[in-house]
């Protein structure tokens, strides 16, 4: 599998189909794991989708005292394993993108797993499948590279190469699982 989740915030129309779809995915327990928010509704209707960047060296896993956050062989960062998670929420504070969610009732963290039952078969995750504006896409690595190249030319970060440790400084859609 060599597919990438690619986000383009400008395209978002704020319809939240991705969130409704997230609830539909297997093992999501009818709870959405992604976010759609207004940048500032008072100022404009610009919204943005946000979901896990599936870091290769995830800060969330690094700050977990129980070592509960596992990464699959494909590179998907899973929700904290329920048997280990002690419910401290370090992951939600460590994540540079503000992604993990926490359920106080059931005392567990849950987060985007790229619809693991779909993406492991190379089928697009639900959010990317339904997104009517293509703000969320599930695309080939090569296509991502060309979009990214074009984007870099228009962006401020041209010429700089993000690394695992400081990529939060850069635009997040440079990242996704299954790169390389």
């Amino acid at each position: 599998m060599n597919k990438i989740m690619y986000l383009e915030f400008e395209r978002c129309i704020g319809c939240r189909a991705c969130q409704a779809a997230c609830r539909e995915c297997g093992d999501h327990d009818a709870k959405e794991r992604n976010y759609v928010e207004h940048v500032d509704f008072m100022e404009s209707r610009q919204t943005f989708p946000m979901m896990c960047m599936q870091c290769k060296d995830p800060a969330c896993a690094r700050v977990c005292p129980a070592n509960a956050i596992q990464i699959t062989e494909e590179g998907v960062v899973l929700s904290a394993s329920e048997e280990k998670c002690i419910g401290c929420r370090n992951c939600t504070f460590g994540c540079p993108f503000g992604i993990p969610k926490f359920d106080f009732e059931q005392n567990k963290m849950y987060k985007c797993d790229m619809c693991y039952d779909r993406s492991k078969h190379d089928i697009a995750p639900m959010c990317a499948s339904v997104c009517p504006s293509d703000a969320i896409r599930f695309i080939d690595f090569d296509e991502m590279q060309s979009l990214r190249r074009r984007r870099t030319q228009m962006n401020l970060v041209e010429g700089k190469k993000p690394t695992e440790q400081d990529k939060w400084k850069y635009v997040p859609e440079f990242f996704g699982v299954y790169s390389d």
């Binding site: 915030f9 610009q46 943005f48 939600t92 504070f93 994540c95 540079p96 993108f97 503000g98 997040p172």
Partner: peptide, 21 residues
Amino acid sequence: YLSDYCPACRRRMRVMKQLNL
């Protein structure tokens, strides 16, 4: 540090940076 901001603000900061806002 990023941890000084609540998750919602962290998300927004990333996006505003990228949108050049």
